[in-house]
Structure formats: structure tokens, C-alpha cells
Amino acid sequence: MNCIETKDLWYRYTDGMPILKGIDLQVPAGAVYGFLGPNGAGKSTTLRLLLGLLKKQQGEICIFGQRLEENRISILQKTGSLIDSPSIYAHLSAMENLMVLQKVYGTPKHKMQEVLDLTGIGNTGKKKAGMFSLGMKQRLSVAIALLNAPSLLILDEPTNGLDPSGITEMRDLLRRLNQEQKITILISSHLLAEIEKVATHVGVIHQGSLMFQGTLDALMQMQEQTSAHVLETSDNARAAAMINDRGMVARIENSKIIMPVVPKDKIALVSALLTSNNIAVYSISIVKSDLETIFIDLTKNK
């Protein structure tokens, strides 16, 4: 069952330019869904629409199987969010910030200290949130998002402003929340490396269109398919012709021979064939296109 489902979601700004072009998002319950795309691709607009911060223009949004328009309050009761930059009251302490929302959510008071400890800012005392570092503000925003014990977390670039150890901690926290508390997490980012370490599912958006949606494994498979053997020889043209004569595929690119990944015994055969025909083999290597390359390809080519 999908926790979030959108159908043919369009959004246009006042000048008529479409920001979203028929987005069909499907976030399975219990997943960590990485929502990827370059800056300006439409990630934040999609998340804002999901939270009702933008008025929907066309399409349908269902969360927890309920239509957002008619069930906004009950959906928000079970949703925690962090949109863009930290959203906190600078003149209040971390605890006071949580108290402001605790009154609205009606959550037990002990939950406030719990979420502060969970996010690692449990000992900030009376220090005003405005005096916090950006990383601490980000943690407080996450604490606020967790206050109502949500079933769904919507996080827009939550690691913005965090140092490397902060990013690792945030990733561990999200993983724990997902595995231990079964919280569905929709997390947006423009950094694939960040998403691939935590996501189970991925959606790639570019210029308002969803380019890819599926499991991280499916994306990995794509990676496998685009990997290749690269050979450097003393006579690339003759070598490529000989390989092609043996029923394998080889092409020359940037003074190197590129061929699809083949089993080890076949590559040994190729090596033996070339050396026996007085072609020196300088190197044989496997080049894997990393996910970053796939991401760039997806966002470039379509």
C-alpha cells in the first residue's frame, strides 16, 4: 500500500510556466523514499503541495489513503515535516519551541525531552534558538517534526547546513526512525550520494517531470547495465575488430576500447587473443557508472 500517492499533479506559477508536469508519485508505506532532483526541478513545490502549503491546481493527492483536500487536519496530525530552512522561533529556547507545538498537538509533555535527546540537543537549556548553529537549528526542526510521533516524515533537504558528522548522525537517525518506529520517510535532496545511503526507494525529478521511480535496487541494476570493460592496447582499431569477429561487442571511445561487462573467462580469452596477435594490452579495467552519472544521464537525456 502506498502512503503517498499523487496522480497527474500539475502546478503552474502565475506566469503560466508549469513547475510540475503530471507527477505520479508513489511512496510505499514503510519506505525511505529519496526524492532527487537538481535545484529548481520541482522537489520543494511537490512537497509543499503534499503538505497543503500550496493550493493544488490540478491532479490528486492521497496520503494514508485519504484525499488531502478533505482530510488535511487528520493527515497533518500524523505527519511531521521540515521544509527548506529551519522554521523555529529564534527568541524561544528549544524546549519553548516544542511547547508552542505541544499545545497544538496535545502530545504528552515528556515527549518534548525525548525528541530533544533523540536529536542530540537535549542539553541546550535556556539558550535561545536564535543563538544555535545552523546544524543545531536543523536538529531542532527535526525534533519539532518528530514531536507528534508521526507515521510520515516529509523532509526537504534535511542535511542542509550540517557538518559531515552531523550528516552521518542525521542519516542514522532517519534509518532508526524508519526501522524501529516504522515511519515512512520522504526525503528530498539534490545529492544522490546522500540519498543512496539511506533510501529504499528513489524518485528522480527533472524540470517538473518524474524521470525515474522505483526501488534503489532497480536503480542499482541500471548502474550494472551501464557498466563497461575498458581496454587500452597498442592497436585499438585492430583489437576492436578482432573482438567483434569473436562475436563480442567492442567500440572505440576516447582512444580506449569499450565493451560491455563480460565474464572473467571471456576477458581472459580476449587478453590472450590480443597478446597472441602481437597487440600489447596495457590495461583492462571495469568502469562502473556511479549513481551520480545515472542521475545526470536521467536528468540530461529526457
Partner: peptide, 15 residues
Amino acid sequence: YKNNTWKQLHTTPQT
């Protein structure tokens, strides 16, 4: 506005 908290407030379960 000053604290950039309208978005936070509008995602609380309040009409």
C-alpha cells in the same frame, strides 16, 4: 514572518 515559521504553523493540524 520574522522567524520563517508560517510554513511550520500551517503544517500543524489546525484549521
